[in-house]
């Protein structure tokens, strides 16, 4: 599996090189400030974990990086150049691929069509050019097999796969199409223990292949298993920012469980 990931990963990636840098980024929806003063870096070959409670601004943060909504404050640097994406296509063209928790695939479409959706192989570049159906089926099947996902029938609707498998197909797809930065939006949230393990192994494999990974989760245990750098968001701003050496699992867990608020609460509820 590591071989495949490494095969497709951009060989120009140098470990530790900064791929995305956010400087003081903010985002408001009308009168509501969803995010303010966020500064973080995504480095090649590292997993940056973004943690936070519901409504902390995690989704807004990835929407900015993945091109669903442009930011309106601060600067977003991709490979050192300032950028502002107006569509996911633009972000993809910069090698930034996002795997969403719930909107990763089109359930009624076949596995191979989902694998190639948005990047279909065609015989020419004219309207109505024929799709290379056979090649796409074969490639999708082979790639998934190499990454340890075996589907009985590459022609079955992807909605019939389990949640973990769907996540893995989406990750495999992003890597196959040359993602340099992989943004994973709560990939383990809806999964069982074993399925989560499978997904986390892919996260680690992507990191080892030199990709920059942004791992969004609200499970500190999952984050600590693979993370190099941890950012905790609270009410739209950074509550904690540290590398693996500076942060312990207990600190992460405490912060995620509510931190100071929890201490206050336990004081109030003292019996």
């Amino acid at each position: 599996m590591t071989d495949t990931l490494a095969d497709h990963a951009d060989s120009q990636l140098i470990k530790g090189q900064t791929l995305i840098e956010m400087v003081d980024v903010g985002k408001s929806y009308g009168a509501i400030r969803a995010l303010r003063g966020i500064s973080m870096k995504v480095n090649a070959g590292e997993v940056t974990c973004v943690l936070g409670d519901n409504g902390a601004g995690k989704s807004t943060l990835i929407k900015i990086m993945s091109g669903l909504h442009p930011h309106n404050d601060g600067r977003l640097l991709v490979d050192g150049k300032e950028a502002s994406f107006s569509s996911p296509r633009e972000a993809l063209d910069h090698g930034i691929a996002t795997v969403y928790q719930d909107l990763a695939v089109v359930p009624l479409m076949e596995v191979w069509r989902n694998f190639f959706l948005g990047s279909e192989l065609r015989v020419g570049n004219y309207p109505l050019a024929r799709l290379k159906v056979k090649e796409m089926r074969a490639i999708a099947d082979e790639e998934l097999r190499k990454m340890g996902i075996v589907v009985k029938d590459i022609n079955q609707p992807i909605g019939t796969l389990s949640g973990g498998q769907r996540q893995c197909v989406a990750i495999a797809r992003a890597v196959y199409f040359g993602a340099r930065v992989l943004i994973l939006d709560e990939p383990t949230a809806a999964l069982g223990v074993k399925q989560s393990g499978v997904v986390l192994k892919y996260v680690a494999a992507a990191r080892d292949a030199g990709l920059g990974v942004v791992f969004i989760t609200h499970n500190p245990h999952h984050a600590y298993l693979v993370g190099d750098h941890f950012v905790i968001l609270k009410l739209g701003s950074t509550a904690l920012d540290g590398t693996r050496d500076e942060v312990t699992l207990d600190q992460l867990t405490a912060q995620m469980a509510g931190g100071d608020e929890l201490a206050e609460l336990s004081h109030e509820l003292k019996r």
């Binding site: 996911p88 993809l92 969403y100 909107l103 089109v106 359930p107 009624l108 479409m109 990047s119 799709l131």
Partner: peptide, 21 residues
Amino acid sequence: TRTGNWIYAVGGAPDSARAVG
């Protein structure tokens, strides 16, 4: 054709379709 793929995708799950470009 690619257009056909896109037609199924925008009808089946518009947000997913948009997210993959």
